[in-house]
């Protein structure tokens, strides 16, 4: 067989193919979505999900798991809608501080050899508590420039598509194409040999967690730009969505095997899956289950492909 049908190729084609199938199904069910306006509405809420998924991807890349990203994005949303709007300097300082806390978490997990699931699960309550302190009742206001950016209507191609492509390519170059990126990924793939080669694993973990924090901040800001105001519980479901997005996009839980382009595609697929089920007029009681079924089907396909790969 030639390259096109090799398992490796199929494996990397699976995420975009799933997305294409879903998109075609949606266009068929609801032809209105096949327009500039329709794609905009269909995809704009996928931007913050894609950013949160990228954040999760950085953590997964070093064999850790972040269960606090939903609470973190909520907190960023609350800070963006209050401090960043009223006193921009304080807001920026707080957001930079949050990224630093994320880096410190990476250091803590590495130095004390703690399970990241426990640390981040604990932090999720801290983030939520802080979010309630910053914004006790839903409210606040999105800074004008963020609102303008998120409601941009560029000619020809809807903004959410441009944003997704830019996010995917920038992170792809950073993580997959640069020398630094290779080292960062190596920390997940083979930490011991990396350490023997003289790299500091501590620094790498801190950098990866800081990157996760940074993209978490972008996600929260993008979300507020879309919703115009915040709520302490606004993004709690992003935790599971982001993990599912990375895996759906071809990432693995261990081994530093991730794909930024796949992660963005995975996030968009998950966001579209919700719309697809709603266009199907499926009973809401079944929707979570159906969303899970879509996930299982895609993952099952991938395992099938991996098996063929292993047989050779």
């Amino acid at each position: 067989m030639n390259g096109l049908f090799s398992p490796r190729m199929l494996r990397s084609l699976l995420p975009p193919l799933s997305l294409a199938v879903l998109l075609i199904a949606i266009f068929y069910l609801q032809p209105r979505t096949m327009s500039y306006f329709g794609l905009n509405l269909l995809l704009n809420l996928a931007i913050p999900i894609a950013l949160a998924t990228i954040a999760q991807m950085f953590v997964l890349c070093v064999n850790e798991l972040d269960l606090s990203i939903g609470g973190f994005v909520s907190l960023v949303a609350c800070i963006t809608a209050t401090w960043l709007y009223d006193t921009p300097l304080l807001g920026i300082a707080a957001l930079i501080g949050l990224v630093a806390v994320y880096a410190a978490l990476g250091a803590l997990i590495h130095l004390r050899n703690l399970p990241s699931i426990v640390v981040t699960l604990g932090m999720s309550f801290v983030w939520l508590g802080l979010a309630v302190l910053v914004l006790p009742t839903p409210g606040g206001k999105a800074p004008e420039y963020i609102r303008t950016l998120m409601t941009l209507k560029p000619p020809g191609i809807p903004f959410p598509i441009i944003a997704s492509v830019v996010i995917a390519i920038v992170v792809h170059i950073l993580l997959m194409r640069s020398a630094w990126g290779t080292v960062l990924r190596g920390a997940g793939g083979n930490p011991r040999s990396l350490e023997r080669a003289g790299w500091s694993l501590l620094r790498i973990k801190m950098i990866m967690f800081a990157l996760a924090g940074f993209f978490g901040v972008l996600s929260g800001m993008a979300l507020v730009g879309l919703t115009t105001s915040a709520d302490a519980n606004i993004a709690l479901r992003y935790t599971l969505l982001s993990i599912a997005g990375v895996i759906l996009g071809g990432g693995e839980f261990v081994g530093g095997r991730v794909s930024p382009i796949g992660a963005v595609i995975g996030a968009v697929t998950l966001a579209l899956a919700g719309s697809f089920l709603s266009f199907l007029r499926l009973n809401p009681d079944w929707q979570i289950g159906a969303q899970g079924a879509i996930l299982i089907i895609v993952l099952a396909l991938r395992i099938l492909i991996s098996r063929t790969e292993a047989k050779r």
Binding site: G38, L41, R237
Partner: peptide, 13 residues
């Protein structure tokens, strides 16, 4: 919240 926001946008469509 984000789920209902997406739902409303779907209803528009």
């Amino acid at each position: 919240v984000t789920e209902q926001a997406a739902q409303i946008q779907n209803l528009i469509l």
